[in-house]
Amino acid sequence: MDAYLEEELYDLLTACIQQPDSPELAARKNRIAEIGKELAADSGADATENMFFAIENRIQGEIGEDARPYRSWWNSISGEWKY
């Protein structure tokens, strides 16, 4: 399951970074939050941290952009995640 979520998260974040003015931004942001909730519920804060770290590295390596500003979209998921 995590591999599917990683791919979906990568696609969503890449789209948000490359198309920040898209009318689909709100829907993408909501789905990104849902993915974070799924990860946290299934495997805890370590899983969310590991997933986002992997995504940050992929985005940096593949499109040369920084995904760190989007970490804050998961702030409401748990008290352990504060960016």
Rank of each mutant, 00 (worst) to 15 (best):
M1T: 03
D2P: 02
D2N: 14
L5H: 06
E6A: 05
E6D: 09
E7W: 04
E8M: 03
L9T: 07
L9P: 01
Y10S: 02
Y10H: 09
Y10Q: 01
D11L: 12
D11N: 11
L12V: 04
A15N: 10
Q18E: 15
Q19M: 10
P20C: 06
S22D: 15
S22N: 09
P23R: 13
A26R: 13
A27W: 01
N30T: 12
N30P: 00
A33K: 13
E34M: 07
I35L: 00
I35F: 00
G36E: 04
K37R: 05
A40G: 05
D42M: 06
S43L: 05
S43K: 09
S43A: 10
S43Y: 03
G44Q: 14
A45M: 05
A47G: 14
T48L: 15
T48Y: 08
E49Y: 10
N50L: 15
N50Y: 15
M51K: 06
M51I: 04
F53M: 03
I55R: 00
I55L: 00
N57A: 12
N57H: 11
R58A: 01
E62G: 01
E62S: 03
E62P: 01
E62Y: 03
I63Y: 07
G64D: 15
G64I: 12
D66F: 02
D66L: 02
R68G: 00
P69I: 10
Y70C: 02
S72T: 05
S72D: 01
W73E: 08
W74Q: 06
W74V: 02
W74H: 09
N75E: 05
I77K: 04
G79A: 12
E80I: 10
E80T: 11
W81E: 09
W81H: 14
W81T: 09
K82W: 10
K82T: 11
